[in-house]
Computed example of a mutant assay.
Amino acid sequence: MSAVAKSGSGAKSGSGEGQRRSPYFTEEHEALRDQVRRFVETEIKPHALAWEEAGSVPREVLRKMGALGFFGIRYPAEYGGSEMDTMATVVLAEELGRSTFSGVAITALVHTDMASVHIANAGSQAQRDRLMPDIIAGEKIVAVAVTEPDAGSDVKGIRTTARREGDTYVLDGAKMFITNGVHADLYCVAAKTDLSAKPSQSVSIFLVEKGTPGFKVSRALDKHGWRSSDTAELVFEDCRIPAENLLGQEGRGFYAIMSNFQNERTVIGAMAMGEAQAAIDLTLDYVRTRKAFGAPLWDKQVIRQKLATLASKVEAGRQLVYHAAWLDAQGFEATREVSMAKAYCGELVNEVMYACLQFHGGMGYMRESTIERMTRDARVQAIGGGATEVMLEEVAKRL
């Protein structure tokens, strides 16, 4: 496996090609940005419309991403990783967001930063040695199964149970809206192991492999956006797994999930700002060539100023994400800043898409239009990973 490049061409970070380099990023980060951007242009954009129709990203594409080191950015070198930091995660998420195919982006980012982290952080030495090389190589894709029909951001409210029977655990319950749920090889499943304990001490995480008796993908879900990302409902009925499939300590799953929420929300914020910048760039190209009333739309002051305002807001959102990620990389507590970034960027990307579609006129409403797809994809950014309302409550607690 080839690791992520350690130095490179100094590709510009941030919004457009001509932007100044951000002081948050090193040459190593910029080399990664250049590498991901090239992959997006050559391997994603020319083919991803077909993946939208198919409802998933081909496994060979994910293997290519693994071979380039994208799936091991923050993992140990002994497993094929690059041992980079939170800022590198932001680079990957932002550049995948810029692809305009957010279903592809979330397929990769759930694997790297929302699911496999539970194995990397809490797995036993034997579990990590067995699984992490294939996870980093893209040979095994991982999903995280926390959300249920009646429990989303409220992790304490999950109802799936896992009871200990000798040297096994038996899982019963259902999971909903699970990204990578159809085609994953490994599932990190949250379940309650002690119904008498406090809710925060009753949840554990288990590793369930595809094909385990009693576990099935109940159905693939038909979504408004993220069409190239497979999403599933999962069912566990008397699903018996070895006791050693427990990830970490029994009863500590809630804390593991809440801890990684900060990483997940930073990733979503960065991805959203990549999407928003791509939408602005796309719209700038359109309004400079589309004529109305005898002149390009760009000549209309109201359009220029609206796009300038949106660009200013996206720059603010981007800097908020960068700062939250930097705090995390430096080891500071950043729940407030991460929650701010998730709330602000999740709402902002929708504001940007609405305006950009408007400036595309009737063409923006057509399914053949890139901005139409991007607008659908953006809607979930204010929901997934913690709805805006939940994020604002997290901020309010810390004011």
Score class of each variant (00 low, 15 high):
136 I>M: 04
11 A>V: 12
55 G>K: 09
104 V>R: 07
217 V>S: 08
196 S>G: 14
36 V>I: 08
110 V>I: 10
344 Y>M: 00
229 S>Q: 10
1 M>E: 13
228 S>P: 14
324 A>D: 05
244 E>L: 00
259 S>D: 15
358 Q>H: 11
162 A>Q: 12
54 A>W: 09
230 D>K: 06
86 T>G: 02
225 G>N: 10
60 E>T: 10
173 G>A: 03
169 Y>T: 08
32 L>R: 09
268 I>Y: 12
305 Q>E: 15
216 K>S: 08
206 F>P: 12
272 A>I: 05
336 R>A: 00
44 I>W: 12
382 A>D: 11
125 Q>H: 11
182 V>L: 02
42 T>C: 00
27 E>W: 03
354 Y>P: 00
309 T>H: 11
51 W>S: 05
354 Y>H: 10
233 E>N: 12
111 H>V: 02
219 R>W: 05
299 D>R: 12
127 Q>M: 04
361 G>D: 08
282 L>P: 14
213 P>A: 00
324 A>Y: 08
43 E>M: 03
287 V>F: 05
250 E>Y: 07
98 R>D: 06
150 D>G: 03
257 I>K: 14
232 A>P: 06
211 G>R: 12
14 G>Q: 01
128 R>G: 04
81 G>Y: 08
177 F>Q: 13
293 F>R: 15
280 I>D: 00
372 E>A: 06
138 G>Y: 09
392 L>G: 02
122 A>H: 15
203 V>K: 04
112 T>G: 04
78 E>R: 15
43 E>K: 15
5 A>T: 13
333 E>V: 01
217 V>P: 12
130 R>N: 06
107 T>Y: 03
87 M>Q: 15
221 L>S: 09
60 E>G: 01
180 N>L: 01
226 W>Y: 12
293 F>W: 14
153 S>K: 12
357 L>Q: 15
72 G>P: 09
42 T>E: 13
90 V>D: 04
17 E>D: 09
82 S>K: 07
257 I>P: 15
38 R>W: 07
209 E>L: 00
163 R>G: 02
32 L>N: 08
392 L>M: 07
295 A>M: 11
338 V>I: 06
344 Y>A: 02
312 S>K: 11
297 L>C: 04
316 A>H: 12
194 D>T: 07
313 K>N: 05
387 A>Y: 07
171 L>D: 13
225 G>R: 10
175 K>Y: 14
16 G>D: 13
145 A>E: 12
66 G>W: 05
320 L>W: 01
222 D>L: 00
331 G>Y: 06
306 K>W: 02
42 T>Q: 09
46 P>D: 05
368 E>K: 11
355 A>C: 03
102 S>K: 06
85 D>P: 14
258 M>W: 08
189 V>L: 03
321 V>G: 01
290 R>Q: 15
111 H>N: 11
